[in-house]
């Protein structure tokens, strides 16, 4: 009995020691999966997004848009974006039904136009985000990652693009918040291994979900920044499928 107790004490001590080590047992790929799960946890979400473009001289341009998103298990998420201001982009709509199925509505032309995924690398409405950055993450599908460092609050990952993926960034450094599994900083590199963009995000819990509330994207090459502020975030309001249609894309912003 005494021996058993001794073993229990030893096991207890080791288990205590093992607590921080056990967290290392999680792999980089598993962390990416956790990140994806965090992003796709809500069934749907809607918000108002204020996008401020800041050039290297400090000149600012502000765009305001409404965003609706719906998680489709096992498939690419659906996303609808409609611009509210400024006047020259008011009514412009962008609908994503899959990575290779995107539509753009330009009210001036009264026409919905399908846009192919080659546009993914283009700037989204002049911001430092590309159309690809605006699509849903699905990191685990496109990247493999390993943990390079860990501290009390964060995992530091090095992610490499998987073979066959068409993502524009071959490597990324991610700093993941352990508490929420949210990436608080992502450094994205170009094909030459040079730092291209830096994403810094703030998040907080709204209801039962973690949500990104602010983000700064810096294009290091262009010395240009984009600030995103998410407002009026709502989760699980039961957005209907018919919201994510070309019919609704043409609908006037209300």
């Amino acid at each position: 009995m005494k021996t058993c107790f001794k073993y229990l004490v030893v096991a207890g001590v080791f288990s205590g020691l093992l607590i921080p080590l056990s967290s290392l047992a999680i792999t980089g790929d598993e962390i990416l999966t956790k990140v994806d799960e965090t992003f796709s946890a809500p069934r749907d979400q809607e918000m108002t997004m204020v996008m401020t473009l800041v050039d290297k001289r400090g000149n600012k341009k502000v765009r305001k848009m409404k965003v609706w998103q719906k998680t489709i298990p096992g498939k690419d998420d659906w996303r609808l974006i409609k611009f509210i201001s400024p006047p020259d982009v008011r009514g412009v709509g962008f609908l994503v039904l899959a990575d290779d199925r995107m539509y753009l509505y330009m009210p001036a032309f009264k026409k919905v136009r399908r846009i192919a995924s080659h546009t993914k690398n283009e700037s989204f409405m002049g911001s430092d985000l590309s159309y690809d950055d605006m699509s849903t993450s699905h990191y685990e599908k496109h990247y493999t990652a390993e943990i390079v460092k860990e501290d009390e609050n964060f995992y530091y990952l090095k992610a490499e693009r998987k073979k066959g993926s068409d993502k524009p960034y071959p490597t990324m450094d991610l700093k993941i918040d352990k508490r929420s599994w949210f990436p608080v900083e992502i450094k994205k590199y170009d094909e030459g291994g040079n730092l291209w963009k830096v994403f810094r995000a703030k998040h907080r819990k709204i209801g039962k979900y973690w949500a990104m509330v602010e983000m700064e994207v810096e294009d290091v090459k262009k010395e240009h920044r984009t600030l995103l502020k998410m407002e009026n975030i709502e989760f699980d309001t039961g957005l209907p499928d018919k919201l994510f249609t070309q019919r609704n894309l043409k609908r006037r912003v209300r």
Binding site: D100, R114, I115, A116, S117, H118, K120, D166
Partner: peptide, 10 residues
């Protein structure tokens, strides 16, 4: 209209 290898066609 559609796309093939990221190329848009119509």
């Amino acid at each position: 209209s559609g796309e093939l290898f990221s190329i848009g066609w119509w």
